[in-house]
């Protein structure tokens, strides 16, 4: 099971928009529309899509198996494929030397090197399997809170973009500054928040005739 596996590391999001509490059938239908569809054989970059909550190849979006208690569970799959720079450079050096020898040349023109490099990259892309990653998602639709099992900036960005495209809803990460601003607005403390400056505890302690331990 991908969702809830091991110790939980999560980024919390708030879901908002025109209909922020869709029915399970609707959620499942939308997930299926943008389900993970695989990566082309020689495709470079990253491809993201939804999968079921069990494992990397789980493509079953039957609503009853996605609902666990008060949560709707599924996962984000991201496949990436990139030719490592070092590998490409090594192959290119071998290829350039072989070409020069075969054609009796002392130098290869820049355009010829570019062509060799492009051909090599295409070939290497077909030989390299993509790196497959999946990140669990659990969504408390009632409380409009959603948890993504990753805090990586790149994954959060991929998740946010795909979620908003899938559900036509907005999803905003839990941000302490935004929470503070909302709390201050609600409790009439915006001026105090505007005046707040980071606590300089070392200075405060030294003003009390303190010296740091060496």
């Amino acid at each position: 099971m991908l969702v809830g596996k091991g110790a939980l590391t999560t980024r919390c999001f708030r879901v908002s928009g025109k209909n922020p509490t869709p029915k399970p059938e609707k959620i499942a239908e939308r997930l299926e529309q943008l389900a993970f569809a695989g990566m082309g054989e020689a495709e470079e970059g990253a491809v993201a899509g939804w999968i079921g909550p069990e494992h990397l190849f789980d493509g079953d979006f039957e609503p009853t198996r996605l609902v666990r208690g008060r949560y709707f569970t599924f996962a984000l799959r991201v496949d990436t494929r990139k030719v490592p720079g070092g590998l490409l450079a090594a192959h290119l050096a071998v290829e350039v030397a072989a070409t020069k020898e075969a054609e009796g040349l002392e130098h290869l023109s820049a355009s010829r090197r570019r062509q060799l490099k492009a051909d090599l990259k295409r070939r290497l892309l077909t030989e390299l399997p993509p790196v497959q990653r999946a990140y669990g998602v659990f969504w408390n639709v009632h409380s409009r809170r959603l948890f993504l099992q990753s805090t990586s900036k790149a994954v959060v960005e991929q998740f946010t973009a795909l979620f908003e495209r899938t559900f036509d809803l907005e999803v905003a990460p839990h941000a302490p500054g935004v929470t503070a601003a909302e709390w201050a607005r609600e409790h009439g403390a915006l001026d105090a928040l505007k005046d707040a400056r980071p606590l300089l505890l070392g200075t405060a302690a030294r003003n009390g005739d303190l010296a740091a331990v060496g």
Binding site: M1, V3, G4, G69, Y71, F138, T179, A180, W183, A184
Partner: peptide
């Protein structure tokens, strides 16, 4: 699994409540 996810969300609520209590004093 549902219990585990709920316990995770409960902790989120605890930390949010601690932050709110801190903000009340801090501001």
């Amino acid at each position: 699994l549902a219990e585990k996810l709920a316990a995770g969300e409960e902790l989120r609520g605890i930390v949010d409540a601690l932050y709110a209590q801190f903000l009340e004093l801090r501001l």
